[in-house]
Amino acid sequence: MINFVGAGPGDVDLITIKGRRLLEEADIVIYAGSLVSNLHLKFCKEGALMHNSASMTLEEVITTMKKGVEEGKSVVRLHTGDPTIYGAIREQMDSLKKLDIPYEVIPGVSSFTAACASIKREFTLPNVSQTVILTRKAGRTPVPEGEDLESLAKHKASMAIFLSVQDIDGVVDELIKGYGSKDTPVAVVYKASWEDEEVLFGTLGDIGQKVKENNIKKMAQILVGGFIEGDYERSKLYDPGFSHEYRKASK
């Protein structure tokens, strides 16, 4: 059995209980070494075989998995954050399916939710935004037509932008065109939940300079939208004047 496990954003305690148990029991662990904290490996049992996928190709990863299963060993593929978001797991799962090798996916805490927790905000505020857009800027890997940052920003939804801080000027330029304002609030969270986490607050007008002054070039979430700063309406969920299945409105 192959288990794709989300390791969480950085803090080793943000892995799920199920994910930690599978990691402790695994005979073989293939981990994304460029992003996953090495502290996770301390929970592996003595004698477990470790493979850092940072230097491996897809074919090498699948070969390692196949060999492990043929030998009757349990294999954990340890991904950063949640494996279903920018985890490149579909191609791995499809390869395993062709080989008739069973697998499961165990979700994890994503860096975008960890980043929002770090700045102590809520993505979905009443009358501000009820939509969260997860995306990235086009770079060496393109994005599909219509998914450029300018087009997405026109929705005025809350945004969490992955894998893009290295081109912060390009990000800002596209977002200003989409949001139509340099005053839109922004937070950049470097290594959310890690011990060396850094948080920068600003607007589209000044965040680029702040990012460069702090030399942040990777492993950062760019959060954008009115949920960061500004007014919002009270939630109906706990409004005494609002009735629902579990509570009648007070007069």
Rank of each mutant, 00 (worst) to 15 (best):
L14A: 03
I15C: 09
D13K: 13
L39G: 00
A54M: 00
A32M: 05
S55P: 04
T63E: 15
N38D: 15
L23K: 02
V36I: 12
D27G: 12
V69P: 00
L49W: 07
E60D: 14
V29D: 03
N38A: 14
L39A: 08
M65W: 01
G33S: 10
A54H: 03
V69K: 02
T63L: 15
V36D: 01
M50L: 15
T63W: 06
I15E: 11
T63H: 11
K18F: 13
A54K: 01
N52V: 03
E70K: 09
G19T: 03
G47E: 11
T63F: 11
R20Q: 14
V29H: 04
I62A: 13
M56F: 11
M56G: 06
I62R: 01
G68N: 00
G47S: 10
E70F: 01
R21N: 15
G68H: 05
I28A: 06
G33T: 10
S53C: 08
I15P: 03
C44M: 05
I62C: 10
F43P: 00
G68C: 05
L39E: 14
K45E: 11
E70N: 08
D13I: 11
G19K: 02
E60V: 13
I15H: 00
L41D: 08
E24Y: 03
L49V: 08
S55G: 01
G33V: 08
S53M: 10
N52R: 02
L35G: 06
E60C: 12
I17Y: 07
H51R: 09
K42S: 07
Y31M: 11
Y31G: 09
V69I: 15
S34N: 12
M65H: 01
E24V: 12
V69M: 03
H51E: 14
N38S: 14
D27K: 07
E46F: 08
R20C: 14
K18M: 15
E25G: 08
K45Y: 07
V29L: 08
N52S: 06
E59M: 13
L49E: 10
E71K: 01
D27C: 13
C44R: 02
E70L: 12
I28M: 05
E24R: 09
N52Y: 03
I28N: 05
M50D: 08
A48K: 03
H51M: 15
